[in-house]
Amino acid sequence: MTARPRSIQPRGARRFALALRAGLGALLALAGGSTVRAAPTVTEAQVRAAFIFHFTQFVDWPPKAFAEPGAPFVIGVFGDKPIDEALTALIRGERFGTHPFEVRRLRRAAEASSCQIVYVSNEAENLFRPAWLRGYPVLLVGETEDFLRSGGMIEFFTDHNEERFRINLNAAHASSLDISAKLLRVAQVLPSP
């Protein structure tokens, strides 16, 4: 890891910083007023959107996940309009390597296979079953309690008012997704090692 002068920090990094600040502000607010700090209210959707966006930094997709070098990195969202919006705000101008980010609102399961990340919210639980994309290089993120058991890879949950997530390593491996150990360290990993 090399030191990098701040002056040439790219625009994207600043935007990311803004987003993260928003997320943290929300967490602090949720923590219950022990800390008094003037921070804008951050919604759970915004925090999750930020997490989803950050997952892209800790997960390696196999080359076959993209049809071509210029193909977009698609984050598909089932249900949950706020996340959709928060993500759209985050990805503006960002790229995943050579691939520009794109957020799609998914309505049919068939659309999911062309995404790199698919987020399934509680209300969209019936629209998509993770098992359907078994073997596809698609990171499946959800919030239902049995999302991992049904073949999902990352599942959000709340622990002491903190937004946390679990990771199903087997499912990820099965889909040829390489999850960074760094990400594993901040997550609950299933099956537990």
């Binding site: 993260l20 950050h54 930094q57 800790f58 760094k182 990400l183 360290r185 901040v186």
Partner: peptide, 8 residues
């Protein structure tokens, strides 16, 4: 990094 990014 992950701890900071994911606020752990």
């Amino acid at each position: 990094t992950a701890a900071l990014i994911f606020d752990d």
